[in-house]
Design a protein around this nucleic acid. Structure first.
Lengths: 191, 191
DNA sequence: CCCATGTGAGACATTCATGTCTCATTATAG
DNA sequence: CTATAATGAGACATGAATGTCTCACATGGG
């Protein structure tokens, strides 16, 4: 059946194109459609056949980022064990998507917040673990879950960018982020 | 003397234009030269008389940001007292420039690092306070000064953006950043 | 073999920000 | 008042990226 074969190949191509675009745009967020096509090893015409335009491409990347976040969230099993360990697992699981996330984080600063494509759900899931940590007494309560979530995004993006420029070592990704974030969020035991 | 009067007015206008541009570009980093001109209350022609082009404007904003950083660094007297207090003073002093800094931080992600316009000196000054804190035993040593500096930038930008969108309260700026950053950088006293 | 489908290459029009220019008007110093 | 200089308004050309289209090629199934 040519139709099914077609659909399957398309899906694979689409996936490959998205990965390439993510890798390129992470490094150079202003890359041209032509550059994106070249990076994916296809022509600009074919790129336009997969994604109607630049907007569609970016929105597809956003959908991919959201999907990877959701998957990382699930893999991290945020409800299990201590909140600290949950956050540590989350950062570890989210690391492979950090570059894409950093790109999207930067792009979001210049989008008018239209219909929410799914970030609010992710915000909520992450926020929940901070709330749980506060309720269990693990985390200090003078830093709001919203701010902690925001700070987590910021640290992930910062670390991804710094690693991109070789200012920090990618292998320390989880350690740097978790230790800094949790060190601030974790309530200090009284001496 | 028309020449001196001219020069002085120009300087004032230039300052005003830069402030307006900073405020606008902080909110909308893709704003047009025309929008920038309107925001400053001048015509596009006059804007071009002050700044040869968009690049020149952005570079002027960068110079302004660097100058404000240097000034904040000096006012914070990073060499006095404990490193923690020094960082706290720094964040407090840098808050007025946070919006501009966030804009420049975002822009820098898509610039090829040409001739350094002055950021490395600022990096060094900030890095020094973290080194001092580590040497005095105030800060943990498993987080490098480079990463701490990077994280500070990231947190400032995150907080500025979050405040812009109303997700966090601007009045808590210093508290949120310092408590999160220092909580991670400050060595925990053993129980 | 033949047909259908995906693809690459390239031409083409369009849009938009930019940069440059002119000219009339305003304001300011002398 | 007069001349100098800055401004605002707008026309204009330019360049870059985008989106659309056509056509030739190749690849794979029937």
């Amino acid at each position: 059946m040519s139709h099914m074969g077609y659909a399957r190949l398309m899906a694979l191509d689409r996936e490959h194109v998205l990965r390439s675009a993510a890798a390129l745009l992470t490094r150079k967020s202003t890359a041209t459609m032509d550059e994106v096509a070249k990076a994916a090893g296809i022509s600009r015409a074919t790129l336009h056949r997969h994604f109607a335009g630049r907007d569609a491409l970016v929105r597809a990347l956003e959908a991919l980022g959201i999907a990877e976040c959701e998957a990382a969230l699930t893999r991290a099993r945020l409800d299990d064990g201590s909140a600290s360990d949950a956050v540590r697992r989350l950062v570890r699981e989210i690391q492979p998507a950090a570059g894409l996330l950093a790109f999207l984080y930067g792009e979001n600063q210049l989008w008018e917040t239209e219909g929410d494509p799914g970030w609010s759900r992710i915000d909520a899931r992450i926020g929940t673990v901070f709330v749980r940590g506060q309720q269990s007494g693990e985390f200090r309560i003078d830093l709001s879950p919203v701010w902690l979530t925001e700070a987590l995004y910021g640290l992930i993006a910062s670390c991804a960018w710094a690693a991109q420029d070789g200012r920090v070592a990618p292998k320390d990704f989880t350690h740097m982020i978790v230790e800094l974030l949790l060190g601030g969020a974790l309530r200090r035991e009284e001496p």
